[in-house]
Write a protein that binds this DNA or RNA. Structure first.
Lengths: 138, 138
DNA sequence: CTCTATGCAAATAATTTGCAAGCAC
DNA sequence: GTGCTTGCAAATTATTTGCATAGAG
């Protein structure tokens, strides 16, 4: 998986630099949406210092390459998550403790296809996020 | 509709000031999600000058009162739209021209209820937005 | 008249841009 | 070696906060 990301960066004519490798690795390891700051902190925990600017620039590169998806929770920070083609999922975000669970809908594609047939609008992306309380915080 | 909003502002012990009346009126008139800046501009078009700070503060008041909903399109700006209980809907946002169409799902509540039964997570809110190209921009 | 709400200025936060120096190829 | 990338500083954009004054009740 990780190797695929690095391969794709090169394929698109971009250089494989240390920040790009390290940030890609973070995305392959962490399974919930990350902000630029969180990526920088995770790297700092491993004693790696990458400038925030480079984090932002790498994020933009990975988005353009279609390797990560933007996830928005409406709190003024942009979050990004690796694209795992096998597992298109959505998130259950706990208002209290902030933990994130993933949720997969069996009929989602069927539903989207049905919507597409009904409307004249050409849907390219959609965003579906759930907020509430996780089991622990009930 | 507009009167209901003003009534509710007072009911909650808040004063009915000019900025609050004018901003509530904008929300009742405009049927797509607005940013703070857009609200200020719309008022400026009518030769009314309201400080951006007051727009933000009024937005927060209306959100707390449950009169407007936050809509997030992941572009770094928060948008707000009046709550119309009769018409729970989602948006089709055109990537090209920015126009917004509303979309209503007949089975949405049924779907949400079914999800709720399957999971241990207590869903309170959800956000569902579609992006793509409108009929004109195809 | 009292106390909340406003406007203005300044602070904070997230993200972007310009540019000289570093490093991938 | 060449030119894309990085790090640092500064700029930009969105939003929030402090405070004196205006105005709703």
């Amino acid at each position: 998986m990780e190797i695929q990301v690095l391969k794709k960066i090169k394929q698109q004519g971009n250089r494989l630099t240390k920040p790009r490798k390290l940030i890609s690795e973070i995305f392959t390891k962490v399974k919930y949406p990350l902000t630029a700051q969180e990526i920088q902190s995770l790297l700092k925990n491993e004693n790696i210092n990458i400038d925030l600017t480079s984090v932002y620039r790498t994020i933009n590169l990975l988005v353009s390459a279609g390797l990560i998806d933007k996830i928005d929770w409406g709190d003024g920070r942009k979050r990004y998550e690796i694209v795992r083609s096998e597992k298109h999922h959505h998130h259950l975000v706990c208002d209290n403790c902030g933990t994130v669970e993933n949720i997969v809908f069996k009929d989602e594609q069927w539903l989207i296809d049905r919507i597409k047939k009904k409307i004249k609008f050409q849907i390219k992306r959609h965003s579906l996020e759930f907020f509430g309380l996780c089991q622990k915080c009930h």
